[in-house]
Write a protein that binds this DNA or RNA. Structure first.
Lengths: 211, 211
DNA sequence: CTGAAAGTACCTAAAATCAGGTAATTTGAA
DNA sequence: TTCAAATTACCTGATTTTAGGTACTTTCAG
């Protein structure tokens, strides 16, 4: 009898990526793609998750947030090895994933060998990054240690309007708030994100997928 | 003798996507993937481009800008059918691509059938969009008719620093410019993008992949 | 029921942005 | 070489943001 193959599951809303990964592992004698999901909902509905060894998790899903999914998955299945994936990457996102229990992070632009390499090393207990991600990690800028702050409902509303380029007055009118109240929320946002002005706030918010 | 297959070329810096597409068409009797490139440079160095029927073009490339690549490709090979692809999409980008000669646009999250469907219709001379893209197109907001303005070298530099949240003074120091000069460039940027403030500028620039 | 967090609102003043000009010099493509 | 575009720089004034406070009310989970 042969050793059972390592079972891989994929959560990604891009069918092409799923197919590409399936193809990649179809020839492998040690790995197999046992399940694939296009939404977090599908994943959590899956019964046999405890037979899965590795989860490749797209971080920028249309409906769900990969960082939250990672935490939830690790809570339910602590032994499962989770690897984050995305097209672009921001240091803070990678860090957030690791913090939430991911064993590594790879860019989708990684070469095929890198996928195999990272998965095998993650299975051995290492925390692994694809080359490009490693580059980003290495840029240890103290300023980049920013994590994504927890925002209140109001703050999210105001952030959204700031991203649209609305002025304090416009926001106040739109949300039926005093000009001074909006000013306070605005200030709190700058403080929470530890940024100097709204431009940087918008930049950080968009790069971190806080649409 | 059989009809020759439709030849497809792919420009995408994600090996997985390329493999996925190759796989998708490997079983087809009417289509074949004849070439794939990971950068615009590779593509323009390719000799047999005039034998290609369709180019699937990733719009957000690490090094190049898909919109510019599209224009250049269509200039060199007017008969070539170009289809834009990306993970997320903004209306203005889709429009820009069409303006630059693309015959359609698809999200990478499109189903595999959609790829085949869009390619075949594009070959028949139609302009096609995947479902999700069509939804975006349908949102005809006058404000979205903005096209991406052409920026000068200096303006790009300054835009980049604005995105980082730098103040006029910081930018001036960094680029060895007078405060007043930076102010002028800044004003020109706001004017060119037709936005009210830097927050909206940053938002527009990031959403449109002007990193 | 109670306390912490969230939401609301106000005051002041410095700093920066935004918006309207004009104009000289440099650069690069035709 | 020549001319348009780009880059640089300055002036002024209104508007807005940023930064530092304080403080009352509402909401909601424990």
């Amino acid at each position: 009898m042969s050793t059972p193959k390592t079972k891989i599951a994929i959560l990604d809303d891009h069918p092409l990526i799923i197919e590409g990964l399936k193809l990649l592992f179809s020839a492998s004698s040690t790995y197999e793609v046992s399940a694939s999901f296009k939404s977090a909902e599908e994943l959590f509905a899956y019964e046999n998750m405890n037979h899965i060894d590795v989860l490749l998790l797209d971080v920028f899903l249309t409906h769900d947030n990969g960082i939250d999914v990672c935490l939830k998955v690790k809570k339910l299945h602590p032994k499962l090895i989770v690897l984050g994936m995305s097209s672009q990457s921001e240091r803070s996102i990678v860090m957030q994933m690791i913090k939430n229990g991911a064993s590594g992070y790879l860019l989708k632009s990684a070469g095929l060998e890198e996928f195999v390499y990272c998965i095998s090393h993650a299975l051995n207990g290492s925390v692994v990054f694809s080359k490009e991600v490693q580059k980003i990690i290495d840029k240890v800028q103290l300023s980049d240690l920013k994590s994504i702050p927890r925002l209140t409902r109001r703050e999210k509303e105001i952030l959204k309007l700031l991203i649209e380029g609305k002025s304090t007055q416009q926001i106040s009118d739109e949300l039926f708030l005093s000009y001074l109240t909006t000013q306070t929320h605005r200030r709190n946002l700058l403080y929470k994100f530890q940024v100097k002005n709204v431009a940087e706030l918008v930049s950080f918010a968009l790069k971190n997928g806080l649409l």
